[in-house]
Amino acid sequence: MANNADTKVRERNKRYNKYVKAVTPSSAFIKSLFNAFWVGGLTCTIGQLFGDIYRLIFPDLGEKFIVNLSSITLITIAILFTGLGFYDAIGRKGGAGSFLPITGFANAMASASMEFKTEGLILGTSVKLFSVVGPVIVNGVVWSSVVALIYYFAMGVIG
């Protein structure tokens, strides 16, 4: 759409945006960074702890499965917290520290699923389950496939 075609208007908008940028308060930088740091660090540490515990209890299981198991534990805990209604408080505190780990992925899924329960389990929950995490799964599959295909053809060429 060609709006604001007038150069005068465009320049006014530029001035206004510059002004807004100058007066808009930004987050307390150090504080929010610190919060993201410790919330994220703590989540990873808990993941590590579960891994070590599982290694101790099930010494026969392969390393790959142990890693999966600790991820699953974190996911389950995050989803339970979401259900009980206090994961969002962690999110408000931790920012990136809470949405970047796998727990944030789980929270995004469960929160969308719960939110749209009112539209029914099929048209609400089932349709909207991926409304927030969809980009992660789609981009993940697309770009990992691309990387794998590059490997495949490179191997073909080389060997």
Binding site: T24, G83, D88, I90, G91, R92, G94, N107, A108, E115
Partner: peptide
Amino acid sequence: ERTYRYPLEYGCQKPPY
């Protein structure tokens, strides 16, 4: 929140503005 932003239980920070 649902109409304009994220699900209620989604944990994300809002900017101070």
